[in-house]
Design a protein around this nucleic acid. Sequence first.
RNA 1: GCCCGGGUGGCCGAAUGGCAUAGGCGGGCGGUCUUAAAAACCGCUGCUCGCAAGAGCGUGCGGGUUCGAAUCCCGCCCCGGGCACCA
Length: 820
Amino acid sequence: MAAEYHYDPAEIEPRWQRVWADEGTWEVTNDSDDPREASYVLVMLPYPSGEPHIGHLKVYSVGDAVAHFHRRTGRRVLNPMGYDAFGLPAENHAIKTGQHPRDSTEAAIAEFQRQFRQWGLSIDWTREFGTHEPRVYRWTQWIFLELFKNGLAYQKQAAVNWDPVEETVLANEQVVDGRGERSGALVEVRQLTQWFFRITDYADRLLEDLDTIRWPEHVKTMQRNWIGRSTGAEVVFRCEDLGVDYPVFTTRPDTLFGATFFVLAPEHPDVLRLAAGTEHEDAVRAYVNRALTADTQLRGDVDKEKTGVPLGRTVTNPVNGEQLPMYVADYVLMEYGTGAIMAVPAHDERDFAFAQAFDLEVRQVIEAPPDTELPYAGDGPLMNCGPELDGKHNREALEEILRWLDREGKGHASVNYRLRDWLISRQRYWGTPIPIIHCPACGAVPVPVADLPVVLPDVEDYKPRGRSPLAAAEDWVRVACPQCGGPAERETDTMDTFVDSSWYFLRYCDAHNDEAAWDPAAVAMWMPVDQYIGGVEHAILHLMYARFFTKALADLGHLPPEIQEPFAALFTQGMILRDGDKMSKNKGNVVSPKTIVERYGADTARAYILFIGPPDQDADWSDSGLEGMWRFLGRLWRNAAEAAAELPDHPPPDELGEDDERLLRKANWAIDKVTADMSERFNFNTAIAAVMELLNEITPAKRGDAAPGVVRFALSTAASLLFPFAPHTATDAYHLLTGERVWEQPWPDADPAWLESDTFELVCQVNGKVRDRVVAPTSASREELLALCRAAPKLGSYLDGHEVVKEVVVPGKLVNIVVR
RNA sequence: GCCCGGGUGGCCGAAUGGCAUAGGCGGGCGGUCUUAAAAACCGCUGCUCGCAAGAGCGUGCGGGUUCGAAUCCCGCCCCGGGCACCA
């Protein structure tokens, strides 16, 4: 090919980006007269720090491919961008350098904006915002107040997770294996008064509605496990000495007759009172002190030996009146159930371990299969439960016992959840201020909506000192109570940044509204998000919180009631690794998108990252793989440029030759393949491979005598199909060939006539092994196919002298002759 | 321990009951261009045996179902992820 056709992305890419920017090509209005179907394609908003990394390049390449495909298949697409701008890294940076977090964050945002434009992303930039802008967090505060006024935001004193490094409390979801998610520091338990959102009210709906959304199954499973719904019963055990009732939660009321002891958590408020005056008082006090100060990580270890101390008291088993000895032990958790359990060592592993350690009775009440050792947690007929129950299947007996407990007032059916309320206050500076005023006379008073936003004041010292840095802004803190006018103080904690990201997708629908957080009509037009894309690391935190917000806001009448879920479909993309390792500055194995885009152009980078493998899986970065994509895009563009310049622009001839037909068939096959890969799954890698195959057929060496019009059609089809992955190169190639703008063209339709052929290659098998291939007419009957196969040249020696046992014919594919 | 994924040429991967290895990368061989080399571009290339024609082998391991298995079933091994004293 002539050398004068030189692929130059440095010239091509900015040229088209300018057209898109000048014409506002990717902007959409909220005009409800637009007849096209609305499609909301959203990638999780980035946390702006430093500059974009390779993960950003991947996730936005995926999002952009989906957005382009939706547009060209006739939908009008909302594809917005914003920044999750509050958060600890910027604040920690401020502590170190004194630079205001706003300044470092906005510098990062500027760099993200610059690179996103360089990547040619098809974003509607008119809707852009950062969550740190007062015009935005004003409405974050408004949502807080709506939740507060409706009892969904509340303050309580509770044992909370304190991160000693970040010097703030954390939500349960942000504690992983007993350590702060960000800092990695062992979390301490502190009794503090904090703000919570009542997400537990929504546990059942969060669980049930998982069935209504198209999310990866493993993400749904993680959410189900996190919600952790268990059904069972609350049963009351009475301590006669003190005259106090102790309810327990159990999933196995059918094993009540097997209870042989009773355990309270060390944090249980009655522990010391129960032990008082008994011989165990000192031992109990010592045990409780040790348990409360011990490392929460160690305490949670499954393999840890069971420890505990007797309380010297008993409780009455309601079903048989037996007196069960009471213990305090740290394997019982205060946060779950009632902080007390009935122990059934024969049928629970943990109770069994404790009984072994303390030499307590193990009473079997459910028959186990032969050769099964205790503890046995499975089902079976009851035993040792008295004549009325013995022999009954435990599941049946469970219902009966429940009815009996209910009748006697000793218990009732009950449901428990692992999910806890969402702790949202943070003793940190760089976040949305909680719009509450504490008045000695009136209590916690909401800031009047007219006074929003409560603007984050500037402070000198960002370092948290066990309280929020905002507490130092005394002029800001001191304020008149909106209710009584008396002296009062502002709440100085800020909100968890996950609050900001729990509603940002609603704001995109109506980003410039100064009268309200959004116009319900705008939200009704776009929501729910048709395709959400992001990292699987948000499977619980962000994705659960956003679902909760959506349901709560719908309940409060701020969203159309039918919008119960924010994200109708979710795609989670895998990570880009280097030599099998995560990229990190420490390891020095970071690939910078900036370097790649500068050297090869955005299209090579974007298309390569989509071609590297299935996008939901982790993939290993390869520099030479990137070179391969560079060669492919160059080849496509040069072929297009050459054809545009040198082949006459005639329509395909009426009389098609063999090469014309082959090329037309391949082009239509590629249309069909790419369309299926894009609409049914996210198979960008195989879609791009199909365009490569098509191009391989078009190159001058392969195309033979194909007519110019056919070559031009095949090339422009290749460019058209490649557009979602390499928009600049595809646009330029298409424009050279046709003079048209590819993004204004509808997605190509495969012509069914070219998807089929008059003949096919019949595979001829003997005993399941391929022995020959012959050309067969597509219309051939079973008998004709069999005859063709028997006549295949290489089959003779396999059939001669053998008895034919069976013949299998698969039309369009193969014939298998079974011989003996 | 429990629950999900996954294991295919030298490497990334394609194929979800019917031609194993599409597409890409790398190496090798050959070619075009060049005085020559490099670069670029084009072609061939799973393994073993064979001069060749060809034959055999081949999807983590062992069994099974089937005319036919990478694909379905049973039992293992290994890797990744999630959960884990939640009664």
